[in-house]
Design a protein around this nucleic acid. Structure first.
Lengths: 236, 236
DNA sequence: ACCTGAACACCGTTCAAGT
DNA sequence: ACCTGAACACCGTTCAAGT
């Protein structure tokens, strides 16, 4: 019962910005955005709330750093020097982000707000760059680069965000409701809408039952890629 | 100095869910998401914090209701029976949402989270319906309805959200920084990025100076519409 | 230089008590 | 049925004090 080595509980390493951000991501993953608290964080790090402020300016900066860490990891997944076609590269980057948001649902809201062209510290430039590079490789003329790239980026983030929201809602129905059950409930809910107000949703409802998220996501990417090539036919 | 008629401060009408939601929207518009507080709200409504809970379950439901009110107004802007082409209808709906998010920047984050197919009480079905109807009118075969519609919806929400974030960042630079100055600062920031890490952003940076948000937004819509028609050529 | 932990101002929510 | 307002638990952030 000596004083030392009593409850070491991992505290060999000193506090650092990196360890704080990592713990923040773990908390966000485990308990959502509400789970990230300076008190919970300091408990997990075996320190006091004030200590964190020595390494991080405030909670907003902490959220930004967590977002950046996760997105950077997602974009680094696929090797930069792949010999695939630009189309396949775009699909890979898109799927990487899709999966990252799927694993870390809190990312969706974070990216929706943070996705401004402005701050260089933000994560946007990285995303724009990795998609834009492939758009250029696609042979799109310079005048079309920005439009094509932002259409892809917006679609990716929007679709991935909706998917994360769906996952959250499926979980809210019950702890063990799987994707199929959830889609089934969506389908029946849509079928029961007023036919005058919602003719389209009612017509499309049955298809929800055979809906596959990733497949659907990739179909959207393919559609936009079709638009890009149609708008800028390759000059072969 | 009688007790009655002292500080009437508009309190003829009784509290109601509608008045609460309206006041919530005003607070959100004026001070952003942080500005919506049950205390600020009850002060504005000349009542106590507890009174609000008689009409609204909690803050999350209040945010949902505020979102629904604003989106419903935006979608109702353009008349349902317009004789324009489906393309123009889609542009109108898209611009309506774009402008709504521009006027109420807090909408972006809200829609990113709330945009789940699931809850019928949410605002998603309305958006999906009004775009999907036009996709159908476009002559897209049924198998392509869902992909085309969700590509459009995701692009609209993603692009509008980014635009709102840009506006917020421009405001953060200074109270009176206008769009042009902001884009100029983005452009120079991108030009100063590492040429090895960010070749695309550097190449695209000069174009930021002549960037027009709405025009750019519509160009993206046009690109996706091109993709839709190319993927499903009209059977004339 | 880095950490501690009490303290401050503020928040969402509840609830006994009123009308 | 509807409203009041004090009270509770909790939060981000600060800061004098320690090492």
């Amino acid at each position: 019962m000596a004083t030392r080595t009593r409850r070491p509980e991992r505290r060999e390493e000193p506090l650092s910005r990196g360890r704080i951000v990592q713990a923040a991501v773990e908390l966000l993953d485990a308990a959502g955005e509400g789970g990230l608290t300076f008190r919970a964080l300091s408990e997990r790090l075996a320190t006091g709330p004030g200590a964190i402020y020595w390494h991080v300016a405030n909670k907003s900066e902490l959220l930004d750093a967590a977002t950046e860490a996760v997105v950077a990891a997602a974009l680094a997944m696929e090797p930069a020097e792949s010999r695939d076609s630009p189309q396949e590269e775009i699909r890979a980057v898109a799927l990487g982000l899709f999966d990252a948001i799927d694993e870390h649902p809190w990312l969706a809201k974070q990216l929706a707000t943070q996705l401004s062209l402005g701050p260089t510290r933000s994560v946007t430039p990285r995303i724009f760059e990795s998609i834009g590079r492939q758009v250029r490789a696609l042979g799109v003329p310079e005048a079309g680069w920005f439009t094509a790239t932002s259409a892809l980026v917006h679609y990716v983030l929007g679709a991935a965000g909706q998917n994360a929201a769906n996952a959250a809602n499926a979980g809210a129905l019950g702890p063990d409701v799987d994707r199929a059950e959830f889609l089934d409930s969506v389908s029946t809910a849509w079928e029961e809408l007023d036919p005058d107000d919602y003719p389209f949703l009612r017509a499309v409802a049955p298809r929800m039952r055979e809906h596959d998220d990733r497949e659907q996501f990739l179909a959207g990417i393919a559609l936009i890629l079709t638009g890009i090539t149609a708008a800028h036919p390759p000059t072969t």
